[in-house]
Design a protein around this nucleic acid. Structure first.
Lengths: 210, 210
DNA sequence: GTGGACACGTGATAC
DNA sequence: TGTATCACGTGTCCA
């Protein structure tokens, strides 16, 4: 109702063309020019509706994609599809943050507590620690006698382990040792690193016992 | 254009007020009754359009929610919002499965390799293993001397550790020991469990060294 | 002035 | 039956 009232006055009541005085400006004004603008309007309206149809198709194709992604929600009205999508996104976000927090993954991957696939070794002074605390981190193939070898290497350099974290998973072992009593200088660190390198590089004997 | 053509004939072209001649059923049929149905049509149309408006609002509120959830996509047309939502859902799904696979979480949570928050102890025969292999799993507070205590407990029951997995994280320690040589019966299992329980229940001495 | 995006009212359809 | 959902054409605003 309102649309018709506002539409017709604009389209018909105001004839546009004012190309005056060819022969008769009355005809030119009231009949000739309005006819062509009316035709143009029809064409424009067709273009408009077709464009709007394409827009609707774009949106609706995304709805079908969404219905395909969401588990067994094939038949659902648009509002419910969107609502369920919101629920799903929130659920996935929450699950992701939870599992990342639980596994200590996703942040500082270079400091991952799980063993890496290649052998690594780093020995460094713990800053801000009195008494020359040194942290040694290394990753290697797990094997029988690994702890014995580590203990022997530590006793050789006269270090004392005050804290240790050891992870063995999938046949790979990662260990972090906090060692004290190596002496203040750099020699102790170098000696510890050399000793541990021998431990890491020792070949793995085949396990004859499961 | 088309709507006006189809609208006016139905609603306006039929003059309304004809409340004449109650005795004449011709009028009753052709004028009186159409008036009430025309009124009813208007009311129904109003109801219809309002209902449709509510539906649109439901859908649009979900769009705003979606725009709020998706990161910095505040200004986007509906089709793009849906497309971005699809992308986000797929990305989250993929990230979740990847991180679950990488951390071995999400499946068999009761067999999680990470230490639990409460002390636990289980000792059981490994099925299908010759030679009486026993697997002992326990979770406890980490402390200095834990490994020594474990070693002593194992030597007391005359068991031989053929494989071990040890995890210490966040001050909690989880250990899995595969022990052989306890004897065929159930007594060895019970003895090992009792010995390990002593280890677990031993109070944690305060760490005087970081 | 041209096209894109949106809201609106309406007819059609399914339950 | 009414009730809810959808597609459509249109008016309107904006860049």
């Amino acid at each position: 109702m309102q649309s018709t009232q506002s539409y017709y006055p604009k389209q018909i009541s105001f004839p546009k063309g004012q190309r005056v005085l060819l022969t008769n400006n009355i005809y030119n004004k009231n009949f000739f020019k309005p006819k062509s603008t009316a035709e143009a309007k029809v064409i424009a309206a067709k273009k408009h509706s077709e464009s709007e149809k394409r827009r609707r198709m774009r949106i609706n194709s995304q709805y079908t994609t969404l219905r395909a992604i969401l588990p067994d929600l094939i038949k659902m009205d648009k509002a419910s599809v969107l609502g369920e999508t919101v629920r799903k996104v929130r659920e996935l976000k929450k699950a992701l943050t939870e599992v990342e927090a639980a596994c200590h993954c996703g942040d500082r991957r270079d400091e991952c507590v799980l063993p890496g696939g290649v052998d690594k070794l780093s020995v460094e002074q713990c800053e801000g620690e009195k008494g020359g605390l040194v942290k040694a981190t290394f990753s290697c193939e797990d094997r029988l006698g690994l702890i014995s070898d580590m203990t022997r290497a530590l006793s050789c350099v006269k270090g004392r382990v005050v804290r240790a974290e050891m992870v063995t998973v999938g046949g790979r072992s990662k260990n972090a040792l906090w060692v004290q009593g190596l002496g203040g200088g750099n020699e102790g660190v170098v000696a510890l690193k050399r000793a541990l390198k021998v431990v890491i590089d020792r070949p793995v004997l085949p396990r004859n016992i499961i």
